[in-house]
Every structure is written in C-alpha cells, then in structure tokens.
Simulated assay, not measured.
Amino acid sequence: MTIDQKLTDLGLALPDAPAPAANYVPFVRVGTTLYVSGQISSDASGPIRGKLGESLTVEQGAAAAQRCALSLLAQVRAACDGDLGRLERVVKLTGFVNSTGDFTDQPKVINGASDLLVELLGDKGRHARSAVSAAALPLGVAVEIEGIFEIR
C-alpha cells in the first residue's frame, strides 16, 4: 500500500509544500540526505497557535505535531519530484514545542508526528528524535518540526 493510500485510509492528505516564510529554502539535498526546514503547525484554517501547558492540551499539541509531519512529507514529496516512493527512511526529527516553563510533556506532543510517520512508513518511519521546549515560536504556533530524511 502506498503512502497516499494509507493517508486516505486515515482520512488525511498531504498539503501543498509550504513556501518559505523568510530567507531560506524549504529543503536541501546533499547526496541521498534531505534536510527539511522547520515546518510549523498549520491546517486548512491557517496556523495552529497556542502554548502547551496554558491554552492547549497534550492531545491538541500532538494533533498540531501531526500536521507538521504532513508538511514535512509534503516537502519530501516536492524534493522527490512528486514521488514519495523515493523516500528510504526518516532519519531524525527535531521538535520544538511552544510551552510554559513548567510543561514537561514535550515528547508526548512530538509523538503526534512520530506516531504518524511510523504508521505510514513502518520501520522506514522509525527515527532518532529531539523534543524540546520553546518560550515562543514563529507566528505563535504550537509546534515546529524539522527533519532529516534519506531519499534515492
């Protein structure tokens, strides 16, 4: 089953690859390694804003992280000329969680992205990861995640 079929089964779809919001490129390929710039939490309504431990629950944060994972995959698809079959594996994610100073469940929030990638890709979706707190993120979003991927 393809990634697109799995997404459909889950009631999800990849967005168009978001354009950069400042002076950077959305991804850089070095050999078979693809570095994808940080993708902020957003959906069809726009940026998903809020602070974990204040205005958002862990579940809402995990849903925001899942949206970041979809944007990461959209960037991978763009880098692979529309062919997600070229994705060999997810290597590493670095997740930033807009959270209060006493919030300590950043890993549970970033699990929203990790769990989706494993569900879609199986062992190819298993990755190294960091999940850290941020006092603020661009546009006040809840989550931002960057990724490193192996492609062919």
Rank of each mutant, 00 (worst) to 15 (best):
S71A: 15
S130E: 11
E88V: 07
V132D: 02
E144K: 11
R89A: 01
Q75R: 06
S114D: 13
S130K: 10
A62Y: 00
S71F: 09
E119M: 00
S130D: 13
T57I: 03
E150Q: 14
Q66T: 08
P107W: 03
R89S: 01
L116Q: 13
A64N: 06
G31L: 11
A131H: 12
E146D: 15
G95H: 03
A131V: 10
V25F: 14
T2L: 07
L137V: 07
F27N: 02
C80K: 04
F149I: 01
L139H: 13
D83H: 02
A65G: 04
L14V: 12
A44T: 15
L139K: 13
L87Y: 02
T57G: 06
I110F: 03
L87H: 03
G122K: 02
A21K: 15
T2D: 13
R129Q: 11
R86N: 04
F103V: 00
D81V: 05
G38Y: 01
K92Q: 14
R126Q: 09
V30I: 13
A142E: 04
G147A: 07
G101W: 05
V36R: 07
A113R: 04
R129H: 07
A44M: 12
G61Y: 00
F96V: 14
P15K: 05
S71T: 14
I151Y: 05
V118M: 00
G95F: 06
E150S: 09
I48N: 09
E150T: 13
N23F: 14
S42K: 14
V90L: 00
L52W: 01
G31N: 14
